[in-house]
């Protein structure tokens, strides 16, 4: 038998991000899209990054695969499956993308190639990454379409993306993302463009696939309900920072940060008829001119003088929860 390695694989997180910052520098302005994000994802865990437009949630996720334009300045440390993504050369990156980690997008019509059939696109990925024969790859393609529950899969393999409905297209994209059995699936609002009755189907499919295949999933969404259906853990993002993280039940039942509280209060759901919505005043800050101090302070009903001057540090009221707000007490004893 082989000697066990000194650090067993299961202990190493699938994703390890330390102090990630992303800036987009142009002549006119510097956009601070991500400002010091740190987190870990273990294999088989579903993390939802919840935030509004311009909060930096998609940029954070794309940085994990370095899917960012040339103008992006990335700093900090990003390790996926133990490998340093920031230091990777081009061919290594190409192996990572679609191999160990793959991604699904909001709009499948723009993410799929319109001039190739679904089958060709899936087979190409498999041939490229695993060097199998084309016939072998096409056979796998059929299995994958059945895995994502596409009816009459054989016929659909020969379909072009425009011939599929929105829900089927999204399933085809998921099949393609899963074609090389990734350990990490990145999902960027994959259900936002879908109808309500289709969205729930895709969410349940993703949840089942994640459990069956044991993938780690990072799921970006702006919808609390979607996070509630799929997340193990939620990270709430505001102005490029994780302002609160925690297990999904705890976070939705007892939000700590005033922004998360506001978000829960302003999300319309059943039984709110006739009540006034507790809206968060104002709008999110511009990422090219962030306020000093807490970025949420200008909209915060509980802001104090200290919030205007210094950026609150991350507090850990419980071992599995963090919040960046001066109102949150650091727990005394480490559990």
């Amino acid at each position: 038998m082989q000697q066990p390695s000194p650090v067993p694989d299961s202990a190493a997180p699938l994703v390890d991000v330390v102090d990630l910052s992303v800036r987009f520098v142009s002549k006119d302005a510097t956009v601070h899209a991500v400002n010091g994000v740190s987190f870990q994802l273990t294999a088989g865990e579903v993390l939802c990054i919840l935030g509004e437009s311009g909060s930096g949630k998609s940029v954070t996720m794309r940085a994990l695969l370095r899917l960012l334009p040339e103008t992006a300045r990335i700093s900090g440390q990003v390790r996926v499956d133990g490998r340093d993504v920031i230091a990777m050369a081009g061919n290594e990156l190409a192996r990572l993308r679609g191999g160990v980690a793959s991604m699904i997008f909001q709009e499948p019509m723009t993410a799929l190639d319109p001039v190739f059939t679904v089958g060709q696109q899936i087979a190409e990925t498999i041939v490229r990454h695993e060097g199998t024969s084309w016939a072998e790859a096409e056979k796998r393609g059929l299995e994958l379409l059945e895995l994502v529950q596409i009816p009459s899969a054989k016929r659909r393999l020969a379909s072009y993306p425009h011939e599929l409905s929105g829900g089927l297209r999204q399933r085809a994209m998921i099949a393609m993302a899963l074609s090389c059995r990734p350990r990490l699936l990145l999902a960027d609002e994959p259900t936002t463009a879908l109808d309500a009755t289709v969205q729930i189907q895709i969410l349940l499919l993703l949840r089942r696939l994640q459990e069956d295949l044991g993938m780690g999933v990072i799921f970006v969404t702006h919808d609390l309900g979607v996070a509630g259906e799929i997340a193990d853990r939620v990270a709430v993002m505001y102005a490029g920072r994780f302002i609160e993280t925690g297990p999904v039940v705890d976070l939705m039942e007892g939000p700590l940060h005033p922004y998360t509280q506001g978000l829960l209060g302003s999300t319309v759901h059943g039984g709110m008829r006739g009540q006034r919505l507790t809206a968060i005043p104002g709008s999110p800050p511009s990422l090219s001119e962030l306020p000093t101090g807490c970025a949420f302070a200008p909209r915060c009903p509980q802001a104090m003088d200290v919030c205007q001057t210094s950026e609150p540090t991350e507090r850990k009221p419980r071992p599995d929860r963090t919040a960046r707000c001066v109102l949150v007490e650091e727990s005394i004893q480490a559990a």
Binding site: G166, T197, Q199, I200, Q201, G225
Partner: peptide, 18 residues
């Protein structure tokens, strides 16, 4: 509609297809 309660998640999609 997605359940707003993560303790009671939807287990079955009410409709199939688009």
């Amino acid at each position: 509609r997605p359940s707003m309660n993560p303790r009671q998640r939807t287990t079955e999609a009410p409709l199939t297809g688009d």
